[in-house]
Amino acid sequence: MTNDRVPAASTPPMPTRALRTGHHLTELGLGAAQFGNLFTETTDEQATNAVKAALDEGIQYFDTAPHYGLGLSEHRLGQALGDTTGVRISSKVGRLLVDSPETADRLDDDGFVVPAAKRRVWDFSRDGILRSVEQSLARLGTDRLDIAYLHDPDDHWEEASSSGISTLVELRDQGVVGAIGAGMNQSAMLAEFVRQTDVDVVMVAGRFTLLDRSALDDLLPIARERGVGVVAAAVYNSGLLSTATVDSSAHFDYGQAPKAVVERAVRVAEVCERHGVSLPAAAVQYPLRHPAVVSVVTGMRTEHHVRSTANRYREDIPESLWEELHSSGLAPDPTRTS
């Protein structure tokens, strides 16, 4: 599978935004963590149908990682894409998969419903990254990655920002990787990667949403200044923004949502309702209003998830909604603050 040819003429167009490397990402991307049986089992057929639906909707950016299902997500994504051309694929490094026959009789203990026949080993060394990329290419059935992210290097800054980045730069120079960066659930360290290293793109999960705009304070300004693209992930904040009516029992940031956060989400939903907009649609489209953001990636397990997410991305949202959210202090409009 190669990733450098143009899509078929029959593919519905979806707007793209460019990285400084020249790679174009569709404004909506498919996050494939659930292809790795995240929290519940997914079938090969469901994953394949989700990818087919994504391509039909014009989505051409797909994100995965070895961490997701101990390689299962990458394998399923590669199988589903087959010889599809014109797509952009990102995967991650830093959690090397090694054989673990002694635990193969039990399930993975990191949220994925898969046999623990392999284990994750933190490794941001040159050798670890080279091995990780080689394994990812084999599972995906391709000869290059469009983007390689350092995966959650929160506790590994020294190694990740030195040998990790230098190895990715080497792979970028060789053409094995198109663009390089880091993906994290925090914005502060991502801002340091942008400030101190030669990254092209970063993925920030849950820190630039209708409920958590912390990336506006540190990451987004420096990313825009340096010409580094930002991919916004986890825009539903673990589920609290994923339904039109806010569920007080929904999760926020991987845990039980605090009462104050739920109340703020309800207020945002009420504003959306007044303007005839669904809360999830606003959640998907809000990050795209910032000029540094190149794509929004959401997890999609099935064809239904893909279709509903594409509808949310395409839902017509009047400027009056963003104006009220901004003036009320509920969510600053990035077009006014960036």
Rank of each mutant, 00 (worst) to 15 (best):
N3A: 05
A18Y: 04
T21F: 02
H24P: 00
T26A: 05
N49E: 15
A54W: 03
L55R: 12
I59D: 04
Y61C: 01
L70H: 11
E74W: 02
L77F: 01
Q79S: 14
A80L: 06
G82R: 12
T84E: 14
V87W: 04
I89H: 00
L97P: 05
V98P: 06
R106N: 10
D108A: 15
D110G: 05
V114M: 11
R120P: 00
D123C: 05
Y149I: 00
D152L: 01
H156N: 13
E158L: 13
G164V: 00
V169P: 01
V176H: 02
G178N: 01
G183E: 00
E192L: 13
V194N: 02
R195Y: 01
T197E: 05
G206R: 07
G206Y: 03
L211R: 10
L211P: 10
S214R: 09
A215F: 09
V231R: 01
A233I: 03
G239D: 11
V246L: 11
A250C: 13
Y254C: 05
A260L: 13
R264V: 07
C272M: 11
L279T: 10
A282V: 08
A282N: 09
A282P: 09
V294F: 04
V297D: 01
H326N: 14
S327L: 14
P332E: 12
R336A: 13
